[in-house]
Design a protein around this nucleic acid. Structure first.
Length: 272
DNA sequence: ATGGTAGCGCTGCTA
């Protein structure tokens, strides 16, 4: 089973690239973030034509998350447990069961600056995510929490840690919030495959030529529960998708992150 | 260089 996550930075602007990427990367499940679409504008037909069922949670110009699956999609839930849709809420979480795996697509708030109200809201959001997971799943069940966490877990996940000293994405409370997810029973899939690698990034600022100068961060994570983590066979950041895929239009500022899990080793259902 | 670029949507916000 191949699971991927990609912050597409507007699905309206990125749909041709996402379609192209699906056709060559062939993920079984793709979690997307920052679709920037309302549910009514989500291009479900385009994905159905490629063999994917889809679930989307969005209400307008910001945020928006989705799950695509070609191995089944059921038990869809938008937002946190008990969260009432108001039409004005920030759409940052959607979950579904795909091929026997509970999948969550998450878009963690950016936080803007350390100490700001947005930063506090980011920490609260991460704790709410942890509590939501802990109340709805057990660590011995197959669970994949995938998305843009807006947190670089370690200094080696940042191109220049000193430059980001005192900034969001690297602060200790943010990293501690991610470690709390790991303490519950999730593992950073990318680190299972590349335990010693440094400076393998998933996001690069559009500005100042950061991508071509290797100035990025690894903030897009696939956090897997133990049954999936022990069955990981391969992982990759697809930097090619950050280059624009043969079109004149700019790419997303994030690259897709992909992980392969052996179905038999994970003890999950065979594909339908 | 308290810069730079992209998306949304039409003015400035968000990232």
């Amino acid at each position: 089973m191949r699971i991927a996550t990609w912050n597409v930075n507007s699905l309206k602007a990125r749909l041709p690239k996402v379609e192209e990427w699906l056709s060559y990367a062939e993920p079984d499940v793709l979690c997307m973030q920052e679709t920037k679409l309302a549910d009514g504008a989500f291009p479900a037909m385009a994905f159905a034509a490629l063999g994917y069922e889809a679930a989307h949670h969005g209400n307008g110009r910001w945020n928006g998350v989705a799950i695509l699956s070609r191995v089944g999609l059921k038990d869809v839930r938008s937002g946190f447990i008990g969260e009432e849709p108001s039409g004005l809420e920030e759409c940052r979480l959607i979950t579904a069961v795909c091929n026997g795996v509970r999948v969550a697509s998450v878009y963690v708030p950016n936080g803007r600056s350390v100490g700001s109200e947005h930063y506090e809201a980011k920490l609260e959001w991460l704790e709410r995510l942890r509590a939501d997971i802990a109340s709805s799943c057990r660590p011995d069940e197959p669970l994949a929490v995938c998305g843009d966490f807006n947190v670089a877990p370690e200094d080696r996940d940042v191109y220049d840690a000193a430059r980001f000293d005192g900034a969001t994405h690297v602060s200790e409370p943010e990293r501690s919030a991610v470690r709390a997810l790991e303490a519950w029973g999730l593992e950073d899939a990318f680190r299972l495959v590349y335990p010693g690698e440094e400076k393998l990034f998933s996001w690069w600022d559009y500005r100042a030529g950061d991508f071509h100068n290797h100035r990025g961060m690894r903030i897009d994570l696939l956090l897997l529960s133990r049954p999936l983590a022990r069955a990981v066979t391969w992982a990759l950041v697809d930097r090619e998708a950050r280059k624009g895929l043969g079109s004149d239009k700019p790419p997303s500022d994030h690259a897709p992150v992909v992980v392969d899990v052996d179905d038999d080793a994970a003890g999950i259902a065979a594909r339908p």
